[in-house]
């Protein structure tokens, strides 16, 4: 409904004198009409599969017929999801949290430089940030796996210098977190850049004019003004990173598996794993929703809530 209120506002910029009744009736349908294709699409390809998945998550197996299920209200799937796979859940949230933190540390200075210091290089930098999207993200992760492999240039050089404690770069949790950070970095950079670029330069100057030195101005003016971008960036990084399984699969080992990996293997590799996989998916979704809700409540701006 708030989306509709928005449409109404955008259209109502002009004078508000009453239009002829007929025209008004016609116009009030317009927002719904415009929403219809997207709503239909989401209904068919999101809402229905989601409901389907939910029913699957409550199914039970036919005893003696592995791989066959019957409709049921069996919450033990959820219990299994939470007890058997707690380490993977913990890892998912931890890795996603770390990746979000590192991505923020890398992205903020980059976005700041692009918005304020890049001058004519700004567009080049923007393209450089977006360029990785031209290749599939699985291909890029495979490439990382080769670069970081034990026989690859990085690991062999570090090993020759005795600088790599475990002997490997891949198959470690650090490689998974690095992969996640790398893959979701643009989603952190772009919203922060957009909010910094939109910030009124005069407002930042006003900080200096009112006795705040460079760092204080950043802390009290620039950073708070870019918070909508920071929030959007952290959400866009954390949410997909928590559900990701490609990085853990390609760069990690058995002891770095995340929830995504478990869901994938329960769906495709374990006979009779469907209900548990569905329960895992729903649990992950609920966890992320709850965390995002608390996060946005705590740090959010009016623009997001």
């Amino acid at each position: 409904m708030s989306a509709l209120a928005h449409v109404g506002q955008a259209g109502g910029g002009g004078p508000t004198d009453p239009a002829p009744a007929q025209e008004r009736a016609g116009r009030s349908w317009l927002p719904y009409l415009l929403l219809l294709p997207g709503a239909l699409w989401l209904f068919v390809f999101f809402v229905i599969p989601l409901l389907q998945l939910f029913t699957v998550s409550l199914q039970s197996q036919f005893p003696g017929y592995p791989g066959y299920y019957y409709r049921d209200v069996n919450f033990s799937n959820y219990l299994r999801a939470l007890t058997d796979f707690a380490p993977q859940f913990g890892r998912s949230l931890l890795f996603a949290g770390l990746a979000t933190f590192f991505a923020f540390c890398l992205a903020y200075p980059l976005a700041y430089a692009m918005a304020f210091k890049a001058g004519r290089w700004r567009n080049v930098m923007l393209i450089a940030v977006i360029a990785p999207f031209f290749t599939s993200f699985i291909l890029r992760t495979v490439a990382w796996r080769q670069i970081l492999a034990d026989e690859g240039p990085v690991a062999s050089t570090l090993n020759a210098l005795h600088l790599l404690p475990g002997g490997h770069i891949t198959e470690t949790w650090a490689a998974v977190v690095a992969g996640l950070t790398y893959n979701f970095l643009p989603f952190m950079v772009l919203p922060i850049y957009a909010s910094l670029e939109r910030a009124d330069h005069r407002v930042i100057e006003a900080g200096g004019d009112l006795y705040a030195n460079g760092f204080t101005t950043f802390r009290t003016v620039t950073l708070p003004m870019s918070m909508p971008g920071v929030i959007a960036g952290t959400l866009l990084t954390f949410i997909p990173a928590a559900g990701d399984y490609v990085n853990a699969d390609l760069l990690g080992a058995d002891n770095t598996k995340m929830v995504g990996n478990v869901i994938e293997s329960q769906f495709f590799r374990v006979l009779g794993g469907f209900p548990v996989a569905a329960a895992l998916s729903f649990t992950l979704m609920a966890l992320i929703l709850a965390m995002v809700f608390v996060y946005v409540r705590r740090f959010g701006t009016e623009e997001l809530l």
Binding site: R202, V203, A206, D209, L210, Y211, V221
Partner: peptide, 30 residues
């Protein structure tokens, strides 16, 4: 000297109020 070192204050053309602060906090900033 830098702007914050001068006993000079500016009323900017576009007002340049801090959008994230209340009016009272804006005025109390200096």
């Amino acid at each position: 000297s830098r702007p914050y070192e001068r006993p000079v204050n500016t009323v900017f053309q576009s007002y340049a109020l801090f959008p994230h602060l209340t009016i009272r906090d804006n005025v109390a900033f200096g």
